[in-house]
Write a protein that binds this DNA or RNA. Sequence first.
DNA 1: ACTCGCGGGACGACCCGTTTTT
DNA 2: AAAAACGGGTCGTCCCGCGAGT
Lengths: 183, 183, 183, 183
Amino acid sequence: MLELIQTCGYSGAGLTAVVDRASAPKGSLYFHFPEGKESLGEQAVALAAERYAALFTEATSTRGSAGDVLAGVLHQVAAMLVDQDFRIGCPVSVVTLEMGADSARLREACSSAFDSWIDAVAAYLVGTGVEAARAKRLALSIIGSIEGAIIISRARRSVEPLEAAAATVRELVDRPDQARVMA
Amino acid sequence: MLELIQTCGYSGAGLTAVVDRASAPKGSLYFHFPEGKESLGEQAVALAAERYAALFTEATSTRGSAGDVLAGVLHQVAAMLVDQDFRIGCPVSVVTLEMGADSARLREACSSAFDSWIDAVAAYLVGTGVEAARAKRLALSIIGSIEGAIIISRARRSVEPLEAAAATVRELVDRPDQARVMA
Amino acid sequence: MLELIQTCGYSGAGLTAVVDRASAPKGSLYFHFPEGKESLGEQAVALAAERYAALFTEATSTRGSAGDVLAGVLHQVAAMLVDQDFRIGCPVSVVTLEMGADSARLREACSSAFDSWIDAVAAYLVGTGVEAARAKRLALSIIGSIEGAIIISRARRSVEPLEAAAATVRELVDRPDQARVMA
Amino acid sequence: MLELIQTCGYSGAGLTAVVDRASAPKGSLYFHFPEGKESLGEQAVALAAERYAALFTEATSTRGSAGDVLAGVLHQVAAMLVDQDFRIGCPVSVVTLEMGADSARLREACSSAFDSWIDAVAAYLVGTGVEAARAKRLALSIIGSIEGAIIISRARRSVEPLEAAAATVRELVDRPDQARVMA
DNA sequence: ACTCGCGGGACGACCCGTTTTT
DNA sequence: AAAAACGGGTCGTCCCGCGAGT
């Protein structure tokens, strides 16, 4: 389901296509997901949260400045987009935009996914010496930038927006006088 | 249709609901939009592009630093979200994420919408003395930040992400030494 | 739909079978019945109410005692059952039994159908000189007898229960001393 | 299953609901009922046959005229309906009407159920001195009246039809000159 | 000339009664 | 005894044309 949400959105991800792709019979779906599409989507969002978090965790193990690390994540995302010919997007974003009004459950799953990423980035920034409050604000901004850049990159079929975001993120986290500027 | 796309996404915006909301008969839809839902969506995206562009244009007429102006736009967006109880999102984002793979036509409409905003912001920044290449990069990053922040704010039902983005944008465009840092 | 309800019950009357039998496409169904199966069933019940009422009205135009007239109706029903090889039953009864708990709307439609028959019989009995209160009670009993007899006849695949009911009804309405007995 | 058939009909009584209500695992159903839903329904009908027969047997042990006894049964049925807020009906009737055409097996189970009641009533009437042939005819009519009255009472959400049937039954069996009238 | 009632299948999610595996 | 798999079925709704109306 994850891949289908990424390419077609939540509403566009038909359960028939889901079970076909999993080469599973239709009847078994409601045994594993008795609450239907919504809980399936919830799990897909949670899975996406884990995967992208792992991607970030892995990036933090590389050496380099915080800016290098975060820009590296953005470049990896860009590479994924190119790899898939710009046919995929962030599943959490699209579910948020489609179902934010209808399903509190899915909205909360998306919120948790974003939070997990934001918290990870914030913790990482704190680890590099950034003050906690600023780290949280930066983390919020950075995750937002990534989400937005993915969307614009997809619309344009070009990684330029992601690269611009990478450069801007590097600028934000790597400047020596950041604390003073915000003071 | 615009409102429905904002709340339910493109796939979720059924034409039945559209014509009901417009209190128009269903049969007349294909007289006005012979090419069906896709062209209707295209028009909705174009309309959204205009509206948000107007919002930005209006903001530039206020006095204050470039950071003030851009942060003002973000705060206006935040106010809209609160006003609508976080039930709406950016229609261009959701159409991009849902239809980017299926409909080249809609993808291009979204790309144009984003471009119009980015170009406007870049032109504005150039007008405030920013060097052209940097202005374009910043404009890309800023529009991306806005889109991303809207999504996360909606998921969280909180304007905190938008406010964080506003602060970060202000930090980006208002620092005196920005050119030097990027050099 | 009426025939399907009579043979398979309301739940057993699939809309697919309904539209097949009417050689109509499924999509057109919800134009004529926007509220779905329930309103379709409502209309089927109303149609049945009319048809059987007409059958009774026609019977009253024949000469003979009240007992003859009512027994004649029962024999007509018996003939219908034989004709259809006991594959049909009263649609109002089955809808009442299946949906009485779920759908107030259908329950009321069934109630109205029964009432229309009971009122017709009661009015007829009053016309033959029966006192009003007794006419109403007898009419209730007679319609009840018919419904019950149809069911048992169907279960048995024999018209004997309907014939027994016919004889009993004749006994009830044609005895000269009925008023005295009830006094 | 019996209760579900009484409220929702046979088709409406899903096996999922049945096993939930019995707090039994779904997989075990086909261990106990290898032939599936049909045999389960058959057993439910047989169970209902026993229960209502017991109700009648018990009533015959009370003193009073035959009319008193039979009217007493009708009043007990009316009390049950009121008790359950008119949400239940006769399971045998509804199975007959829904499955009479599809399943010979269930039809015969229903026929047997009706027969057992009719035979019991006929035997009782013979015991009170009624001539055998008339007793059988009356028993058929009485059971039919009860079934019909239950249905109409349920549709109306009122015990009036059952009370009318009770009065009529009393009139039928308690009049002194009944034999002469039928002669 | 243009509107719109009405029709038209295909597919949506969901759940059915059943069987196979453990 | 029961967990898990299995398709076909449920009702409802999708986006879309045809042709009779003013």
